[in-house]
Amino acid sequence: MALLNNLIEKLQWLPGIGRKTAQRLAFFLQKMEKARVQELADAIVRARTMLHECSICHNLSEHDPCEICRNGKRDTDRICVVEQPSDVMVIERTSEYRGTYHVLHGVISPIDNVGPDDLRIRALIERIKEHPVEEVIIATNPTTEGDVTALYIAKLLKPLGMSVTRIARGLPMGSDLDLADTTTLSRALEGRREL
């Protein structure tokens, strides 16, 4: 059982995987075809070794600069600042945004000992000083830490003379008002717009 226990223990390194789930996954892997298991293992190792931070936007990519930064059709006058590479994926899926990105890899959170220098904030300022842009859209999460990070970045960017915007917060589409929690609703009211 040593091999199995070892696998279960290691699976628990992953976020959101507790003992029970790890056990289930471990036993599931034993039933899979050996080739498929190899495929999975290879995919994990390849992704981890071949992906790097793009030297411009700090998104993860196997190329440097990344596909988005190299794409001549993207609007380089606009930078959307996000917390994580996964946020880039989410926004890309909308196909609405044609500008570029900047990935911070976290948010300012003093209780977790994360300050501005632990993020890619300085790199953002340098990037903009070198290639000025028209607008920076800050799309960090609407949490205490996401908001503080947004305020902090806005303060640094304002003197550089571009427009700094924050994404709106509001109600999920297609759902009823009475299903929204009161905080979301009152924030949505605060951010109302003339029709």
């Binding site: 300012i108 003093p110 300050g115 501005p116 205490t144 908001d147 503080v148 990070t149 305020l151 902090y152 303060k155 640094l156």
Partner: peptide, 12 residues
């Protein structure tokens, strides 16, 4: 000695 982060928390 850096006060910028503190300033952002002040605002909140």
């Amino acid at each position: 000695g850096d006060r910028d982060v503190l300033d952002a928390f002040d605002e909140q």
